[in-house]
Amino acid sequence: MAEIFTWGVIPIPIIIFQTLALLFSIAIEAYIFSRQLLLTHRECVQYSAAINLLSAIAVWLFGFTMQAFLPPKFKLQLISYIFLGRFYNIENETLFNFVIVLLLLFLFFLVCFVEFKGLDFLEIIFSEWPELNTPEERQEFRQRLVAAVTYTDPEKVTAIFWANAASNSAILLVILIAVLQYYT
């Protein structure tokens, strides 16, 4: 453990980037929710902040588990990309790019799914809770929880999908401008 602290690598850029990206997507998604869902402005920002935090945590956890189970060959690619900003000796470039695009798509849908289910649960958490004294009331509450897991409200799904698409495209655009500036 002691030797770990002798190395000086700190993840400052990704922390700054994620903070900015979170602020960005919270604002954009709150705006889209206010247009599409029947919520007050204050609620929109709160819901949007909560589910964006939730999805950011989900992506981190996904990354942590992935890196623990990756075979050494792919892990080296990951380490190379994170430290040096480039991949190492790619044999089949087409396949590699394809896998990267698939991974990004998967992450996008993971974020959508987490935000959607998070929104369902947050609605229950933020609503008035019944007194869980009688068996009927408990039964009713349990049914609401089951409904949150299984029921899919198409309007909410589209709202979240478009909100995410908009916020992620905006962030991509910002990255693109930054990258263009870097190369010219």
Partner: peptide, 12 residues
Amino acid sequence: DDFGESMFVRQV
């Protein structure tokens, strides 16, 4: 090596 091109980390 130089980590300047990394999007994730910086060296101390």
